[in-house]
Design a protein around this nucleic acid. Structure first.
Length: 560
RNA sequence: UGGGGCGUCGUCAAGCGGUAAGACACAAGACUUUGACUCUUGCAUUCGCAGGUUCGAAUCCUGCCGCCCCAGCCA
């Protein structure tokens, strides 16, 4: 259920917005999602995207801008711009005409900087980065004024223009705001507004050799776009006084309100661009879209539907408390969504051959199966059945544990949508491994029930030996063995889960799966949810990813 | 020993002076041709701690305690 359907605002940000609307402070709400195009989006960004775009959807007529915060040409690339757009769209959001780039404001930003200089509120500082750091003071001691702090307006203007003209080397000078070197808030100790970087920008090319910093760019970009509520994460709270300072000292068209909320932390995963990059670079995963990655592209490839991500973001809420969300909640949202739409099919991951000795050799038949028992409108399909089939190895125990009600010597089970079979003989190879089962079937039980009313305790899935298709199946587990790998700092890779990926080959799937298309969701009955791997699957070589397992209470009973 | 933020069930999270929502997880049971789904039931005498105000406090006041963020010419 969306926020709107719930009626009342249910987080402090929506409460603020509702209040502003009631007071008539704004005609319409305008939010923005401002990624820096220096990496791929991840689940943490999804929270911000759902918040910003969600709020705009709930307050029609409102809008949410997609703005690339591309002020640092040394880290940003066009490639990321495209992937970010794709990910936002995939999540189900639309920025309409409102696609912006901070780099498009470079000229205006420059003018505003000159205005600050003219007001005596900014100055060109010749100190080196090291010197600036050294004179910034510490958390408990005030900083020292730069010796260049009292330059005249004319000199500052001249120097700044020459910075822009490319007369000075990288790092030789910066433009700083003149605020308060003794402030308890370090962000107010004459922050840098412009730095010299003779680097070409992915959009503005070589037009500029000075680039504005985030602190200067963000509030002005927000104001120029008429953003009403600028939502960001908690670590920017300390920057708010600076954000407000710029807006108060410059003739900007609006004064957006910055509101901070806690970023998302998810158990058994890392959500930091730097760490995700490290996982990719060190080869711990196959790439940004590895299905084990918490990136949007990884999640998509894993087979999580966008609806599940949105519902997850709704459920985790928005607050200022730093929290660690249980991955079980994400998994629940994925299952909840997939349970509704995944087509049910049968696939045997670890095949054990079963020969039905009393079924006529050479004969075969087509049995009818439901595509979704709870949704008959999703139709039926035919599945082949004959004398030789495969069942799951786990569905047979030579010496059944208590409460195990699948197949065992002398026991009878139901083959889903087919017949009852009874295990008569266990065939082993020289090393004692079970290689085949000999069973008999009861022709009277076609469809799954016995005319004499006898019941079986278990129903197992199966696949026809001759007419099943072979496939590779990839099973995923959490990437880390510890719930908070981030807490380990840079050694977070020490707790990588060695079993996070299990590749099964020789799996046998019912023939209908030969027509599986990328983007389709399936439930392999009794196993979990699967989808075709969009990258590695080929018509002659299907590869399926397991998106999520089914809840398994039996696993709890047997304790494994 | 500066500044900012936060502390309500195992995990998220409502609550905004009137006597602790909901979700996930967990537990028990029902149903079941997926040990799935669905359904039912249980799950904070208590809100970091200690005082105070009040007829009444998770909500107001005071003082402690704990955790997170900030010393990039990153965002």
């Amino acid at each position: 259920m969306s926020q709107t359907e719930l009626g009342a605002p249910n987080d402090f940000i929506r409460a603020i917005i509702a209040e502003d609307l009631v007071r008539g402070k704004h005609e319409r709400i305008v939010t923005r999602f401002p990624p820096e195009p220096n990496g791929y989006l991840h689940i943490g960004h999804a929270k911000s995207i759902c918040l910003n775009f969600g709020i705009s959807q709930e307050n029609t007529p409102a809008r949410c801008h997609l703005r690339f915060d591309d002020t640092n040409p040394t880290k940003e690339e066009q490639e990321y711009v495209e992937s970010i757009k794709e990910d936002v769209r995939w999540l189900g959001f639309d920025w309409g005409e409102h696609l912006y780039f901070a780099s498009d404001y470079f000229a205006q930003l420059y003018d505003y900087a000159e205005q600050l200089i003219n007001q005596g509120k900014a100055y060109v500082c010749d100190l080196s980065a090291d010197q600036i750091r050294a004179t910034r003071g510490t958390l408990t001691e005030p900083g020292q004024n730069s010796p260049y702090r009292e330059r005249s307006v004319a000199e500052n203007l001249d120097l700044f223009r020459r910075m822009r003209a490319g007369e000075f080397a990288d790092g030789s000078r910066v433009l700083r705001a003149k605020i308060d070197m003794a402030s308890g808030n370090l962000n107010l100790r004459d922050p840098v507004l412009y730095r010299i970087m003779h680097t070409s920008h992915h959009r503005s090319g070589d037009q500029w050799c000075i680039y504005p910093t985030y602190d200067f760019t963000h509030p002005i970009s927000d104001a120029l776009e008429g953003i009403t509520h600028s939502l960001c994460t908690l670590e920017f709270a300390d920057h708010r006084p600076l954000y407000d300072w710029f807006l108060a000292n410059l003739p900007v068209p609006a004064h957006p309100r910055q509101i901070e909320f806690a970023r998302l932390n998810l158990g058994y995963t890392v959500v930091s661009k730097r760490k995700l990059l490290q996982l990719v670079n060190e080869g711990h995963v196959a790439g940004w879209d590895d299905p084990r990655m918490p990136t949007i592209s990884g999640i998509r490839r894993r087979g999580y539907p966008p609806e599940a991500i949105r519902s997850f973001c709704d459920k985790i809420g928005v607050a200022k408390k730093e929290s660690l969300v249980d991955v079980a909640l994400l998994e629940h949202c994925v299952r909840e969504e997939l349970n509704q739409r995944a087509l049910r099919v049968m696939g045997v991951l670890n095949p054990l051959k079963v020969v039905i000795s009393n079924y006529p050799a050479g004969r075969s038949e087509e049995l009818t199966a439901q595509n979704h028992p709870q949704q008959p409108e999703l139709g039926q399909r035919q599945i082949p059945f004959s004398r030789e089939i495969f069942i799951e190895r786990d569905d047979f125990m030579e010496e059944p544990a208590k409460k195990f009600f699948r197949l065992a010597p002398g026991r009878e089970v139901r083959l889903r949508y087919a017949y009852f079979i009874k295990c008569e003989e266990v065939i082993k190879d020289a090393s004692g491994e079970i290689v085949e089962l000999r069973c008999t079937y009861d022709p009277q039980t076609l469809g799954g029930s016995a005319p004499d009313g006898r019941k079986v305790k278990g129903t197992i899935h199966w696949v026809d030996a001759a007419r099943s298709i072979e496939a590779e199946v990839r099973l995923y587990d959490r990437l880390f063995t510890e719930e908070s790998p981030e807490k380990r700092g840079r050694s977070f890779t020490d707790c990588l889960n060695p079993h996070s990926l299990q590749i099964l080959s020789g799996c046998r799937l019912e023939p209908s799966l030969a027509a599986a298309a990328p983007g389709q969701y399936f439930q392999f009955e009794r196993q979990g949810y699967f989808c075709l791997d969009p990258r590695d699957a080929r018509p002659d070589r299907p590869v399926f990813n397991r998106s999520a397992t089914l809840r398994d209470t039996w696993k709890k009973v047997k304790g494994s």
